[in-house]
Write a protein that binds this DNA or RNA. Structure first.
Lengths: 333, 333
DNA sequence: CTGTTAGCGCATTCAC
DNA sequence: GTGAATGCGCTAACAG
């Protein structure tokens, strides 16, 4: 046997209290089965010895761990921390511990993490999972699993619907007189990207606007800067970016080129991770990640308690947050 | 007994492979003890049955869990996610799972979390712990524990020393001809704030600069905007802010007032959490949180392997990252 | 090299 | 109400 903590066990408490293991065990799990007097004695002895039930032994015996795992593509992406925090706090209310996993946007890593966690958690929350539908379904068959921003039929999921906010953004630009705009995309595999691009196209068609889609695999500040030239080359007067970081990069590049925002060009972000902290402050689509994290966790807790997995599809609508990077369209340069 | 996963056990693999439990166990832990042939047979059987060692049972038997806990005051504070990510990735290299805890800046919550994790982790990393020295020492006596940005003698710790970077910032401003500057403070209780303010004062004195300290309890974008008027009122030509968020707020306010940066006023941030993502890109003091996270984890891993806790005090110096918000001083307005 | 045996600490039947 | 006995799945002496 390897070095182990020398914490008191149920047996020592039993001896000290003059009862058997069974009673001590019961005192900590179903005290109503014991006489008040015995419970009191046991607690006193436990307290005195500094006894704390052994989580592992209990888990081995019951199959219940009191842990859940939360896996995200990238902890450092500003979209996730608030979500993580919310999920965490919700788990805490039910006395669950949470394992955090960082998949690095990599399906294999994600799969590996799930495997590592599998043996010691009650269930999973997968955020913006990079796994295939088949893999997700397979894992969901083994353990309760809820998805955030991934739409797989039959698997409980919480979706942030940026389409509503994006549609508002297009309408907003149309009202301001813009006739030609571009959508600057995000990661190819991303469900959100597909959703946003689709929403831009649909709304644009309905409102009779012309829209160009420009791909931009790596959503980030720098790539936002670099893509700006192509955006301007289209002759558009406004752009909607896949996310705030990309939009912020565009803002910096436009400023460098002496193109005033919003006077000469309008920019809309997505996810509102920057708050009003750009200059000019960014018009963007609201992000409901905190609510998503909370909802996902409540869903998981519910499933764990009622051991019944219902096919829930919880959608959170978004809306446009109008700040200072959008304004009336100008005569094409 | 409660509902349990029906995963195959070591016994079934043993039966299928025509050996005993022991051999199967060995095949998965110390295969070099077995003949190649036996190992092959066992792996084949295991593979065929889809056997995966039961983490919990193993932990109960060995006292080793392969988990560690990382506790931070606030996951959503942009300072922490990169650190978390780095720690995470380092843990992964050693096949450890990491529990993430959010203390909400609250000592009691932090203590509670430690208790919850205690039974299922090898050790702890406490980031910017809000606990008292006594509590930290007590917990460290039970389990390996390493600190980040908290200086308790006898406990292995990793410290980010922002004083060096701040001193460079003052020197940089002095070289540019600035004679009068202001330090915009942060939270009163903050160890980092004390450290930074002290460094500004010391360097300013050495270089013969005049410095005004302005308090600003809530470090954030909005408070940065609001404090700007008082900053300008001092007649200074440059400001060093407690953190990047505050600096960013100041940038926005200066832009609104038509004061060009760096032409008319210089601004320096601290922590480099924004990268080059402001406009103009912010001159700031490097933040070495990624290295801190990595170092802390390596330290912990080292302790776990050699079961010897040395009194390590690992200091990471910071330096100035010169970007675009600092330039030559101008004639006082 | 491999089998036998005895726990790890606790929850849960089944008796009394 | 409480005790005795069994097992959760695996590791680790101890033999052979």
């Amino acid at each position: 046997m390897t070095p182990r903590q020398n914490r008191p066990t149920i047996n020592q408490v039993a001896a000290a209290a003059g009862v058997t293991k069974s009673s001590v065990s019961r005192a900590f799990t179903r005290p109503e089965m014991l006489s008040q007097e015995t419970v009191r004695k046991i607690f006193a002895a436990a307290e005195q010895l500094g006894y704390v039930p052994n989580h592992t032994a209990r888990a081995l015996s019951t199959g219940r761990h009191g842990n859940i795992a939360l896996i995200v593509p990238d902890v450092a992406n500003p979209f996730f921390p608030p979500l993580i925090r919310a999920a965490q706090s919700e788990a805490d209310r039910s006395d669950y511990c949470v394992f955090l996993g960082n998949s690095d946007e990599n399906p294999q890593q994600e799969d590996k993490l799930i495997g590592r966690f599998a043996g010691q958690v009650e269930g999973f929350v997968l955020v913006s999972s990079r796994l295939s539908d088949a893999q997700i379904i397979e894992h969901a068959a083994r353990r309760p699993l809820v998805l955030i921003n991934r739409d797989v039929e039959g698997i409980p999921r919480v979706l942030i619907d940026s389409a509503t906010g994006v549609a508002e953004a297009v309408a907003h630009l149309a009202e301001l007189g813009h006739r030609k705009l571009v959508y600057v995309g995000g990661p190819h595999g991303s469900w959100s990207n597909k959703q946003r691009r689709g929403a831009v196209r649909r709304s644009a068609r309905e409102l009779g606007l012309e829209v160009t889609v420009i791909s931009n695999e790596f959503a980030a500040f720098e790539s936002g800067r670099k893509i700006t030239a192509s955006v301007l080359a289209t002759g558009a007067t406004a752009a909607i970016a896949f996310d705030d970081l990309t939009a912020q990069g565009m803002l910096a590049e436009l400023a460098d080129q002496g193109i005033a925002v919003p006077a000469n060009f309008a920019v809309v972000g997505c996810d509102d991770v920057l708050g009003a902290a750009t200059y000019p402050s960014l018009t963007t689509v609201s992000n409901r990640s905190v609510e998503a994290g909370k909802a996902a966790l409540n869903l998981l807790m519910d499933i764990l308690q009622n051991q019944a997995i219902r096919d829930v599809r919880y959608v959170l609508n978004t809306s446009l947050v109008i700040r200072k990077t959008t304004g009336p369209a100008v005569i094409p340069r």
